[in-house]
Simulated assay, not measured.
Amino acid sequence: MATIRRSGSGWQVLIRRKNYVGPRSRTFLSRDLAQSWADAVEERTKKVLNVIPVTLGEAINDYINGPLLLHRSAENEKYPLRVMAESWLGDIPLNDLQIKHFAVWRDKRLMKVKPNTVMRELRILRVLIDWARDERGAEIKNNPARHLRVRGTGDARAPFFTDQDEKKLLYELSQLSNKNHLRLTKLALTTGFPRSELLSLTWRNIDLKKKLLYIYRKNCAATDNSSALRLVPLPEEAQKILEELQRRDGKVIELSKGSARHGFDKARKKAGLETLRFHDLRHIAISRMWRCGMNALEISACSGHRDIKMLMRYSHFQLSI
């Protein structure tokens, strides 16, 4: 099922099993580590998805080890699902699930997190239960999670960000030893890309002559497991930032997710912007696109939004001050 071969100074594992769901290659420093990972994958494929799930907890575990592996936001969704699987809710048989069970879960969650967070987790549950019924053959008459409502959701975040705030933030970022933190934030303010897309951006995705970015993005695991190509016009300011870089191979921004988060948080706190989040830069960039006279089709090409309603949640004219 797995092939292990030399790859540079390490060992690469290639998974060749048909219909396998998960990462198909990984590189390790030693052959022993590579063999251990290959054995673990093979053992998991024998156990996972061979029995119809009975309880919600079993369905959650199957989903985590199945479609969720290819979901672009898998890491963010995995934690609340595991907590749910280990709670009282995970012990309930799928055919006994009722809306009252999810109502109790919702009310307890609302005591700890905001309504929009509960709504995001509920959407994951809806897709998961549909998947367990339609693709795993679980005995579920209807999906009670689809009938549950969460009050207080739908209020789009509208961060207030002035030109002076931007100067403070960029100054504090410029004081960091790694200049990639400053480049990352500047690119976010000009392109409107989320942090994950910027960190995964390579020079192979960029054509400076044609002023285009080629972005490959995984579709939602609930839809399919393919990747879609998006052609994004390269903003003038972003092109200037990229042209200043001497090295043009590998990743454009050499930062890990943790390092990028830590650097931005450190700079925003020093700048006195306690409530600012990196994702707010996406709101700000898209709002500035509206102010510059771009239409919805042009902005959606840059932002990647397929739904005009979602695009409008990121549009706040008052942010461009």
Rank of each mutant, 00 (worst) to 15 (best):
A260V: 10
K100Q: 12
N180K: 04
E77D: 09
P93E: 01
T162S: 15
L122N: 04
R26E: 13
F317T: 00
E298P: 00
K251H: 13
F193Y: 11
I92V: 14
I215W: 15
L170A: 09
L231T: 11
I215G: 14
Q175Y: 02
R126L: 07
I129A: 10
R157V: 03
H71Q: 08
Q164A: 11
E77A: 06
D307W: 07
A238C: 06
W131T: 00
Y171W: 14
W290A: 07
S256Y: 00
R31K: 15
G22A: 02
I60D: 14
I64R: 15
A285F: 03
A238Q: 12
W88Y: 14
N95Q: 14
D165N: 10
D62A: 09
L199A: 07
T27C: 12
Q164P: 00
W203L: 08
Y214A: 13
N295G: 08
A301I: 03
L56W: 10
S259C: 08
R120V: 00
F28A: 05
A296N: 15
V41K: 12
T185G: 06
D134V: 06
A301K: 15
K210R: 15
R136L: 15
F28V: 02
L176P: 01
A156D: 13
Q239S: 06
N50W: 10
W105T: 00
V252M: 08
I284C: 05
I308E: 13
L122E: 14
E121W: 03
G152T: 04
Q239R: 14
I241K: 02
K46A: 09
T191H: 07
V83S: 10
S200Y: 03
L276D: 08
D207Q: 07
Q35K: 15
S30R: 02
V252I: 06
S73F: 09
I253G: 01
I284A: 05
L89Q: 03
Y314D: 06
T275P: 01
E139T: 13
E236K: 09
M111Y: 02
Q318L: 12
I124T: 03
